[in-house]
Structures are given as structure tokens and as C-alpha cells.
Nucleic acid binder design. Structure first.
Length: 922
RNA sequence: GCGGAUGUGGCGAAAUUGGUAGACGCACUAGACUUAGGAUCUAGCGCCGCGAGGCAUGGGGGUUCGAGUCCCUCCAUCCGCACCA
């Protein structure tokens, strides 16, 4: 084998790796473990485009590098194979989603195989496989059989709660549970029927059924979670979403809100992701305060973070949905209020958001009594107050809050200044917390921060308010009215949910005649015939959401074949957690939050040992498409090159980027691509047809999809892998551009040519020269640093430099080149294996060990120092590096030089930066 | 509006603790070899200038002997959140 023939080499090694199970990994206590994980993909019908493998290439390089460094590396891959597109396809074609999914997975695996990844395929998992979702169901059972004990700040088994109820009732229980729970005694509990007890327990369980306002997508016939809705439309498919109330399974993720925020601290995750999670959880500390309604027993409870501004309250605002509104509306105001409520109801979420500026509201006619001043304060309703946040009621302080201010101006309500330095203008409120309180009764003279403390204290003393923490995070809706998801291990008896036994799992997804809801609007599972539990009336017919299976898969990879446990204790203890997790930032408030929640839950129950499952997270950038355009002259069958388009009346048409190279169109290929251009005239510039370009999303309809398979055929996987890394930092988003790939291809040919001269390989076993050692050890150092810093683009450059240097020295020393092969192996595994074999090794290069960096090879015999005057370089001085006094000598020499230079002026200061620079200040 | 990030040649980009900005690659130019070149090799390639030299890291200011890097301020682009009381 003399020529570098990538396709021959690559297919040879794919076969060999599979036959030898080169990447199969087992627990090995003699070596430290390293767990590298990619976010497993949903196998879509379109296959991989060139952007998808970016992260996989990076993690593959890290995995192989760590293996060479002596780690026992777990690097698995699987498929998040439940999901909407397969189901949509099934609805359209009648094709069972399992079949489409299998086909898509087969295609994905083939594409991944072509890229030469070191996945341990013996550990492959699929979330839609019964032997996997059996354990998703099992975790659901744990959640159902648990409650959140606030006193212990952790989840506990439901049995502990039952025994408390039996002994003491619920008065001493501090739980994260439903809000409408009334106090009961042990006698009450013990006198209840089993069903009554179950009803009560349902209010405490970590997964529970509740009437929930949900995002309902009529088009998809299902409920979506908040993170699946973007601007009032479904994230997948872009269908409109409306609010609807349904009894739904929920997950009490809110119980974990604080821990989810606090534990972010110790994670080596991108700041942006941490910040997004913090904002999503949206913790704010404030107080709740009751306002007595005038001439009524009832009061209105508000939440505020600024109780210091209590004397600035000039009106109260309720959300239109508030239950109190009908009660407090006076006769005179009723018509107007009803009209407003009706209007608010019909405004969709989307309208409300696109129309933030518009101020609307209505006076109810009633008043509350200010709890401190005793003054009458009018009660209004307005849709800027959200029913779902806080208490659905706001104490309006127009001097300190812009929305309250705008509302007050619009309806001509009073504005009271309550801080002396407050700068309230005609159009703006001042929310700052500096100055001293004025017009504020007992708070006068305090700073706002002191006033917050003092006012809360006073409210608590009077029994009208308490300190309160509020979160934006809502409990997660867990049911979906869909077919292609995990069935709940739940059946109903007299309307009460019960769990299947462990030995009844998995509860398999039943066959249905159609994948659509029933005529009565029941989910598709209700179509299943003879799908009846052995006990009870019926199974739950909703299925679990997309995030269920992905919330724990990283544990299953540790022990994927275990039939008795979700993962064995030894595997969990050994692999412990993911050391390096790579995936897209779009999962910030979805998968990455839910999976942290489940991890903490499993930790609470003592099933796993870690509170967080991913130590380090890196987001790979999105690869966008780079579309190419041709310019067609209107009403003519004529295309003009880009530079000439303005001389004609043209319009741009997408052309397939695969027939364009460096923005030059292959005209003959274009005639095939667009048969109607077969006889068209092409106006060229410099005998070329130049295309225009634009960055767009990579998609079929824009003809800008670059398929990795094509590039693998043309250049080989090793070239593609290195080129994708060479493109720029992995974390950065960028448009795909194949233009530079030749440079990497050339490099690999040169690398190959270091070994092969005239079709044969014959290396010298002579001792390398100092210069040769230096090239090698410089590279070792750089590669190590680059991988640690995830600067994989510069590491490719460093390979090119070293290779060029060795080539120009005509280096053929085995000692050097053998190490070079090992260094290159993580990046270009096929090529490295081939050369390793040619060097006479019979084991895989990945059983070798990474060359050890030795700084002694980098010591220079002489060193050139720049001499700078006032920071500007004026001369260079060279001296040998072995004498310790050389820096002083250099300084003296530099001094003399400068003397000459400046003809007698004395330097003020001489700065010597070791090994770098000499700077003389005059 | 709030939060996060980014801004360096014709292009993708380097510059790790403040120390010779533009490594490496693409494109381009010239040359060599060649029947040929979409192969290979050599040289050049930020801008102005014949040159010495001067000017350059989004704009402006600051700290420093010295700033792409630190501080202030403004601008632009991207991402996320958005009536959160």
C-alpha cells in the first residue's frame, strides 16, 4: 500500500474494529474511568447532515485521547427514539412508528459507522425499546411512591408519610404537596376508606394528577410543556397552541427548585446554560400580604418583592381570571368588568405577548383597606397581572414600577413618592432602592433595604403577611395524548389510579388501528382492543412525554443489559457520573433540567450516589447552512454571474451547494439539477459563473444540505473529522463551508508521505536529532493543552506545522514517527491504525500509550530576545540559554545598545520578562 | 426591556498569566517541474509608502514601559427570557 487510499483503509478498519470489538468497554478497577457522553439523537428521517457529527467528532477525539492516556473510557451511543415526527408520519401513512424508527436508526448507525466513531455499540439503547422503557416506567413508579419531605429537604418513600398519618395525622407534616390540603388527625385518617386515603396521598405524591392549565395544541392533538412552546406555537411543526384545563399527570419538579439552583454552583457548565436555568426557575424572595376588602370578611393576598414600598400603593390589580372578581364587582361596574373578562379570555397567549405596550383594565368598584395607613385603595383588574404567578394579585406602586406607573397614568390614578431621592418623571417610574423612605409612616427615614426587613416584620406581627419565596418554575406536565411514547404503568379502579407491580413491567405499548385520537377525543391508546388490566377498569391512556426516556439514559448506559435493575450497583458505583457531556444548548431548560431533577430524586432514595450526573457540559455550536444562489433574468432563460446581476433585471434562485465549489457553479451539473435550464444561456465573468451566498438554516428546501457521506466518499472520514475540528472552536456556531477541506486532505497525504517513500515504508532506527525531538515534544505539549482546553481547531494546525517541519527535515526516524502516529490517532483513527500496523505492531494503536512530554527537549541552545524601548521593538539580542546570568548579561548589552541609540540619554527603567522580552524605558 | 455571548486580513481563524498581532488553512499572485495540471514544490500575501518608516484587533476614552487581552463608555451582531409584581 503505497498511496494513501482512504476508502480502502477506512472500510478495512471499520470491519476490523467491529470484529475485534475494539471499543467494547467493561468495568476495570485497575484503571481510572472516564465517561464521555453525547446527547443521544432523535433518529429523524432526514439522516445526519454535516452539522450533526460536530459534537460527536469532538467527543470521539476526547474519548480516544483519554484511552491512550490510560483511562477506561465509557463512550456509548443510543437513540431517543420516541417522538412526534415518527408518529406524524404514521398518521399520514399508516406505517407503524416502530418500523420507521428502526429504519431511521439503521441509517443513522450506518452514517455514524462511516465516520469511524469509537462508540461501544454493545451498549446501544433505544428509549422506545420495551427493555428500556420498562425502567422508565419503574422510575415513574418510584416517583408515584414518594413524597417530598420539606423538613428533611428530600424525597422519601410514601410509606413514611402513611405511618405519620396513621400516628399523628398531617398537622406536623411539612411537605411539598398540593395547596388545597386541609388538616386531618390520625383518627380521621384511620377512619377513611382505602379510596379516601388514596385520594389524599395523591396530593402528596411527587407525580400526581391535577386539573392543570396546559398548552394544548389542537393540530397535534396533544399537550405540550412550556419548553416545547415557542411564542405561542409548537416548537416542532409550528402549530398554534392554546390554554386548556385538563386533568393531567404532573411532576413536582418545583419541590427541587432550590436544589436545582444551588447545585448549579459546583457544575462545570457554560454560564449561559446555568443562567438560563436560574431564570427559568425564576426564584424571587419577597413577602405575601393580605389587604382586607372593604365591607367584607375576605381579603386579597398579594406577592411583592418590595414591601418597603407599601405606602406607595395607590391601587390593587387582580388578574381577570381571579375567582374574587365576581364577588367584589359592584352592580354599576358589572357590565364593564364582564366585558373585559370576556375580552381577556379570548386574547390568546400570543396576542397578549405581541401587544405588551397596550394598556387596558377596569375598575371593580370595590376597595381594600390599606393595612398600615387604613386608607381606601381601589381594586382594578388588568391582564398585565398573570393568574399563574404569585397570588394573581399585585399591589400597585406607580412611583416604583413602570407597569404600575403606565397604568396609573393611563387611568389617572394617584402616584405617591415614597423615597426621597426617587426620580419620577412624567413618563418614568424609578425602581431603584437608594435613598430614605418618605410618606411612609413607620418606615420613614429608613433605607429601602432596611424598610423591607422592617415592613415584613411588622406584617408578621400583625398577622397579615409573611416572608415568601416565589418561583416561575411550574410543575412539569407529564402526560401526552399521543401514541408513540411510554405507557404509564397505571390502571384505574373507581377513578383512582393504581400502579402495576414490578413483575408486570414493562407494560407494552398496545397495537392500535389508527394513530389518531378517538372520536370522543380520547388519546390513541384508547383505541387498543383487549388492552385491559387484570385488576381494575382501564389502563391510563396518555403516554409519557419526550423527556421521560432522556432523563435517566446516562445511567442505563452504565449497565444497559441488566434485566433485574435499572443499572447494577457495581456499575453505578464505578462509572458514577458523566465526566464530559456534549450537546446543544437548546436543551437548557428542557432535558438538562428534567434530568437533573430525576438525578436528585434517585439520589434522595439512595439509588445512586451522585446529586448531579454531568460534571462538565459543553455546548457544540450549530452548523448553519451556506446557501448558494444563481441569478436568473426575469422572463428570460438566462442566468448571469453574480458580478453582473445588477446590470440585469434578475431574481435569485437557490442552487444545490453540492454543484458549487468556491462559489463557482458547475454549469453542466446545474443543467441536470434544473432541467428547465438545459438550454439556458449563462453569462460568465472571467469564464466562470460566480454564485451568491447567504447563511440560512440547513434544510432540504434550501438545497444547502451537505451530506457527510458524500464528503467521506470523496475525502475520507479522517479528513472530514479533522476538517470539522479545523473549522473553528467547537462551541461556536458557524455556517458550513467546504472550501478549506483540501488543506486538511493535503496534510494527511503529507503525513502519510512521512512514512511511505516510493511505495515502501522504511524507517531509520537512528537516534533522532535534537531538532526532531523538539518538533515531537512541542507537538505533544500542544496537543495535550489543546485537548484540555477543547481547542481542537488549533490542535489540527499544530499537526500541520509539525508535519511540515518533519517533512522539510526529511525525518524518517522511527522513534519520532511512531509517536506521531499515536498523537494523530484520536483525530484520524483509520490512518493511524493503518500506519501503526505498517510499523509492525499487531495490536490496535489505541492499546498504545500516549507519548510522555519531556520539557528537556524544548530547552533552546540560544535564545533571541527582542529589545524594546518604551514598548517598541528596536533590536534583537541573541545569547545562549545555559548560563544562569544570561538575562543580566542581556540586560547590560541591551543597555549599551540603547546608550548608542539615544546618544547619551540614561534609561529610567529596564524591564526583563524572563524568556520573553527586554524593555527599556527612557 | 433583562440576561448571556461575540466583534481581529479577501475568507475560516490563532495569540494559554498583559510581552515581537494575524500562527495554521483557504483564496489570490509569481516562479519551478511538466505534453498537460483541478498534482507537487518554492516564494509572496493586513493597510499606506519606492524606502526608511508609519497605521492597524467594532468606535471613543483610561490604566501600563507595553493592551486583541484589564477598566469605563458607546455601537453592531447572535442566542436565551420576556407584562414575574
Amino acid at each position: 500500500m503505497g498511496q494513501y487510499n482512504h476508502s480502502e483503509i477506512e472500510s478495512k478498519w471499520h470491519k476490523k474494529w467491529e470484529a475485534d470489538q475494539t471499543y467494547k468497554v467493561e468495568i476495570d478497577h485497575s484503571r481510572p474511568k472516564y465517561y464521555v457522553l453525547d446527547m443521544f439523537p432523535y433518529p429523524s428521517g432526514a439522516g445526519l447532515h454535516v452539522g450533526h457529527p460536530l459534537g460527536y467528532i469532538a467527543t470521539d477525539i476526547i474519548s480516544r485521547y483519554k484511552r491512550l492516556k490510560g483511562f477506561n473510557v465509557l463512550h456509548p451511543m443510543g437513540f431517543d427514539s420516541f417522538g412526534l415526527p415518527a408518529e406524524q408520519y404514521a398518521i399520514q401513512t399508516g406505517q407503524h412508528p416502530a418500523i420507521t424508527t428502526d429504519q431511521n436508526i439503521a441509517r443513522y448507525k450506518e452514517q455514524l459507522r462511516n465516520l469511524g466513531f469509537s462508540f461501544d455499540w454493545s451498549r446501544e439503547i433505544r428509549t422506545s425499546a420495551p427493555d428500556y422503557y420498562q425502567w422508565t416506567q419503574w422510575i415513574f413508579k418510584l416517583l408515584f411512591n414518594s413524597w417530598y419531605n420539606k423538613s428533611a429537604d428530600k424525597a422519601e418513600k410514601i410509606e413514611t408519610l402513611i405511618s405519620v398519618f396513621e400516628a399523628k395525622g398531617n398537622s406536623e407534616v411539612s411537605a411539598h404537596a398540593d395547596e388545597d390540603i386541609t388538616t386531618f388527625s390520625a383518627d380521621d385518617w384511620n377512619s377513611w376508606s382505602k379510596e379516601q386515603q388514596q385520594q389524599m396521598l395523591l396530593k402528596y405524591r411527587i407525580t400526581y394528577i391535577a386539573d392543570t392549565t396546559v398548552n394544548w395544541c389542537p393540530e397535534l392533538g396533544t399537550v405540550l410543556s412550556n419548553d416545547e412552546v415557542k411564542d405561542g406555537f409548537s416548537e416542532r411543526g409550528g402549530h398554534p397552541v392554546v390554554k386548556k384545563t385538563l386533568p393531567q399527570w404532573n411532576m413536582r419538579i418545583t419541590a427541587y427548585a432550590d436544589r436545582l439552583i444551588n447545585d448549579l454552583e459546583g457544575l462545570d457548565w457554560p454560564d449561559s446554560i446555568k443562567e438560563m436555568q436560574r431564570n427559568w426557575i425564576g426564584k424571587s424572595i419577597g413577602a405575601e400580604l393580605d389587604f382586607q376588602i372593604e365591607n367584607s370578611e375576605k381579603s386579597i393576598r398579594v406577592f411583592t418583592t418590595r414591601l418597603d414600598t407599601i405606602y406607595g400603593v395607590t391601587f390593587l390589580v387582580l388578574a381577570p381570571e381571579s375567582e374574587l372578581v365576581p364577588e367584589i364587582t359592584t352592580e354599576e361596574q358589572k357590565a364593564k368588568i364582564d366585558e373585559y373578562i370576556e375580552m381577556a379570555k379570548n386574547r390568546s397567549e400570543r396576542d397578549r405577548m405581541s401587544d405588551v405596550k397596550h394598556i387596558s383594565g377596569e375598575f371593580t368598584g370595590s376597595y381594600v383597606i390599606h393595612p398600615f395607613s387604613g386608607e381606601k385603595v381601589p381594586i382594578w383588574i388588568a391582564d398585565y397581572v398573570l393568574a399563574g404567578y404569585g397570588t394573581g394579585a399585585v399591589m400597585a406602586v406607580p412611583s416604583g414600577d413602570q407597569r404600575d406607573f403606565d397604568f396609573a397614568k393611563h387611568f389617572n390614578l394617584p402616584i405617591t413618592k415614597i423615597i426621597d431621592s426617587q426620580k419620577v418623571t412624567d413618563t418614568e417610574a424609578d425602581p431603584t432602592k437608594v435613598g430614605k423612605m418618605i410618606n411612609s409612616g413607620f418606615l420613614n427615614g429608613l433605607s429601602p433595604l432596611e424598610a423591607i426587613e422592617k415592613s415584613i416584620e411588622e406584617a408578621e406581627n400583625k398577622g397579615i403577611g409573611t416572608k415568601k419565596v416565589n418561583y416561575k418554575l411550574r410543575d412539569a406536565v407529564y402526560g401526552r395524548q399521543r401514541y408513540w411514547g411510554e405507557p404509564f404503568p397505571v390502571f384505574y379502579k373507581n377513578g383512582i389510579p393504581y400502579l402495576l407491580e414490578d413483575d408486570q413491567l414493562p407494560l407494552n405499548l398496545p397495537e392500535v388501528d389508527k394513530f389518531l385520537p378517538t372520536e370522543d377525543g380520547e388519546p390513541p391508546l384508547a383505541r387498543a382492543e383487549n388492552w385491559i388490566p387484570s385488576e381494575g377498569d382501564a389502563y391510563e391512556t396518555t403516554t409519557m412525554p419526550g423527556w421521560a426516556g432522556s432523563s435517566w439514559y446516562f445511567f442505563r448506559f452504565m449497565d444497559p443489559k441488566n434485566e433485574n435493575e435499572f443499572a447494577g450497583a457495581e456499575a453505578l458505583k464505578y462509572w458514577k457520573e458523566v465526566d464530559f457531556y456534549m450537546g446543544g444548548s437548546e436543551h437548557a431548560t428542557g432535558h438538562l433540567l428534567y434530568s437533573r431533577f430525576w438525578t436528585k430524586f434517585l439520589y434522595d432514595l439512595g439509588i445512586i450516589e451522585v446529586k448531579e450526573y454531568a460534571k462538565k457540559l459543553v455546548n457544540q455550536g450549530m452548523i448553519q447552512g451556506r446557501s448558494n444562489f444563481v441569478y436568473r433574468v426575469k422572463n428570460e432563460n438566462k442566468y448571469v454571474s453574480k458580478g453582473l446581476k445588477d446590470q440585469f433585471n434578475t431574481y435569485a434562485v437557490h442552487t444545490d451547494v453540492n454543484i458549487v465549489s468556491d462559489d463557482v457553479l458547475d454549469v453542466e451539473a446545474f443543467k441536470v439539477f434544473r432541467p428547465d435550464a438545459k438550454d439556458a444561456e449563462f453569462v460568465l465573468e472571467n469564464e466562470k459563473y460566480i454564485c451568491g451566498w447567504e447563511v440560512e438554516k440547513m434544510s432540504k428546501s434550501k438545497y444547502n444540505v451537505v451530506n457527510p457521506d458524500d464528503l467521506v466518499v470523496k475525502y475520507g472520514a479522517d479528513t472530514l473529522r479533522m476538517y470539522e475540528m479545523f473549522l473553528g472552536p467547537v462551541e461556536q456556531s458557524k455556517p458550513w463551508n467546504t472550501n478549506g477541506i483540501e488543506g486538511v486532505a493535503k496534510f494527511l497525504k503529507k503525513f502519510w508521505a512521512l512514512f511511505y517513500k516510493n511505495e515502501t515504508i522504511s524507517l531509520s532506527s537512528e537516534e533522532p536529532t535534537k531538532a526532531e525531538w523538539k518538533i515531537l515534544h512541542t507537538l505533544i505539549k500542544k496537543i495535550e493543552d489543546d485537548i484540555e482546553r477543547l481547542s481542537l481547531n488549533t490542535s489540527v494546525s499544530n499537526f500541520m506545522i509539525a508535519t511540515n517541519e518533519l517533512a522539510s527535515l526529511k525525518c524518517n526516524k522511527k522513534a519520532i514517527l511512531e509517536s506521531m502516529v499515536i498523537l494523530l490517532a484520536p483525530y484520524a483513527p483509520h490512518l493511524a491504525e493503518e500506519l501503526w500496523l505498517a510499523l509492525g505492531n499487531n495490536k490496535t494503536v489505541f492499546d498504545a500509550s500516549f507519548p510522555v512530554f519531556d520539557p528537556k527537549y524544548l530547552v533552546e541552545e540560544s535564545k533571541e530576545y527582542p529589545i524594546m524601548i518604551n514598548g517598541k521593538m528596536r533590536a534583537k539580542i541573541e545569547f545562549s540559554a545555559d548560563a544562569p546570568q544570561e538575562e543580566m548579561k542581556a540586560t547590560v548589552l541591551a543597555h549599551e545598545l540603547v546608550q548608542k541609540w539615544l546618544e547619551g540619554k540614561e534609561p529610567k527603567k529596564v524591564i526583563v520578562v524572563p524568556n520573553k522580552i527586554i524593555n527599556i524605558v527612557v
